[in-house]
Amino acid sequence: MSPEPGRPAAARAAARKARAAEARGRRRERWEALFAPWALAAAGAAVSAAFLFQPALGSRILMLLAFMAAARGAGKRVSVLATVLISAGIVAANLLVPVGRVLARLGPLVLTETALLEGIERAVTFEGLIYASKASILPGLRLPGRFGSIVASAFVYYERIVEYKGRLRPASLVADADELMLRVWEEPPAGPRRDAGARRPARGWALLALAVAAAWALLALS
């Protein structure tokens, strides 16, 4: 598509952002229709554990890429630039303390093998767990037991706070926050929203089983 000459760059960027958000929303809907929140969370926990125990750096990087793809499929924001920058920061911090064979010297900075590998491993693990979690935790996840019901009530109150129409002004923050507390409090939380127990397609269950099996098979092979 060619750029529209009459349209300012800011408006084009805003339109692009809106289209991206819309596409993310569609992907999120498809993802949520495919997996039951509890099953996805359980599979996420199993895959994360296999990732954490994975000793081979190559396999970990492969899994990180798969988690990023899954997080994108789940309609979550995936920023390659932010991932690279944070990882570079973690690697750089690890390089500050030289450990192992010297690979290179860049002025006062000594690049050492063990520090470099440890830095990369820590960065990959850090980012991998974030993306695995993003892909496997849905907002509709309900926890069992009394603790779960308190968390669910907290979510009901949270929705009310988000929907609150009043204002929170810096000049009268205490009074405005008090008014918000009283308004949100006025009605008891209705029964927590259920997941509706909707049936998920067999394809979703098969994908989860495949993901868990692949993660643990990779661990067994390493």
Binding site: A41, L129, I130, S133, K134, Y158
Partner: peptide, 10 residues
Amino acid sequence: SVISGSLFSY
């Protein structure tokens, strides 16, 4: 952690 989807992360 549920809202931000970071329950299984560091």
